[in-house]
């Protein structure tokens, strides 16, 4: 199959898979909302001048006591829920995409080198990867932030990356081991191509597809992880908007019947993650040659 045909086949399957389309639309809408949050949001919830305690704990606008511009109500500091959600999505996506980019690049390089050269490099990195994997990203990031404290978004990104590159390294290495023996690699070697050229021109493009699936799934995992860490109080600092922290504040008011402080940020988080997962599901089926399609 020529490269062009493969591309058109993937495009065809994408256009005929409603969940893939819905997933990517959700993701695009979220990215749009996050980028333009300062222009869309009715209020800047972290500008102290815009906060007045007159408006704390207001219900959504369609309920009795709701006031403009707090469409979805306010929290105990008088921050509008809608505005805080929009700003919170920024944090979610910044953390999500940064981790995926940094951990992904690092992991792919390690996996590529370990798979290609083998030897002690392979043994050391993969043993390390196994250990990190069994401690799990969640647990390692939690311990790191618990001990050193989540001073800023950067520290949170670093803590997650530190444990997360392992997923990419393992996937890439496995894929390289399969591709390495292919006849076109042997042929490239026979023509006298140097290691660097083989790695970059032949191995990398052919071994990388499985990494894309990991990347898509991981984006969802990292976004949930950031929310979890912020919920526990070891994530982003109090001065940064975060969906997880909103829910943790709302938890204090569930017995008071103030459901809007949990339900709206919670639903936003779920929608974002479902969107990414729908897309990831399609990608996984598309790139897995082993499954029989009906």
């Amino acid at each position: 199959m020529s490269e062009r045909k493969i591309k058109s086949r993937i495009l065809y399957s994408y256009l005929h898979d409603p969940s893939a389309i819905i997933g990517s639309i959700i993701l695009v809408v979220f990215i749009f909302a996050a980028v333009f949050a300062p222009w869309i949001a009715p209020q800047d919830p972290y500008d102290l001048e815009q906060l007045t305690l007159d408006h704390f704990l207001t219900p959504p606008i369609w309920m009795e006591g709701g006031t403009w511009p707090f469409l979805l109500g306010t929290d105990d500091q008088g921050r509008g829920i809608l505005s805080t959600i929009l700003y919170g999505c920024r944090t979610s996506l910044i953390v999500g995409f940064s981790v995926v980019a940094i951990a992904g690049t690092f992991g792919v390089i390690i996996g590529l080198l370990a798979g290609f050269y083998g030897g002690w490099l392979d043994i050391v990195t993969m043993r390390l990867a196994d250990t990190f994997f069994s401690f799990s990203t969640t647990f390692m990031a939690f311990l790191f932030l618990g001990i050193f404290g989540g001073a800023s978004i950067l520290v949170v990104i670093f803590a997650i990356c530190m444990a997360d590159w392992v997923r990419y390294a393992r996937t890439m290495r496995g894929s390289v081991l399969e591709v390495r023996e292919a006849s076109y690699i042997v042929a490239a070697r026979a023509t006298g191509a140097r290691d660097f050229r083989i790695l970059l021109r032949h191995l990398m493009p052919n071994a990388i597809p499985p990494v894309f699936v990991v990347l898509a799934v991981d984006l969802a995992v990292v976004i949930m992880l950031e929310a979890t860490l912020s919920f526990l109080g070891v994530g982003v600092p109090l001065t940064e908007p975060s969906l997880g922290m909103m829910i943790s504040i709302g938890k204090n008011y569930i017995y008071a019947g103030m459901w809007w402080m949990i339900v709206f940020p919670g639903a936003t988080l779920i929608l974002l993650v479902v969107g990414i997962n729908l897309f990831a599901d399609w990608l996984r089926e598309e790139l897995n040659p082993k499954i029989e399609r009906a």
Partner: peptide, 18 residues
Amino acid sequence: SLGGISIPTFLSGILLIM
């Protein structure tokens, strides 16, 4: 099950309490 992997544990716990 897609919902199951898309709802973080802390959120499903709070929703169950609610």
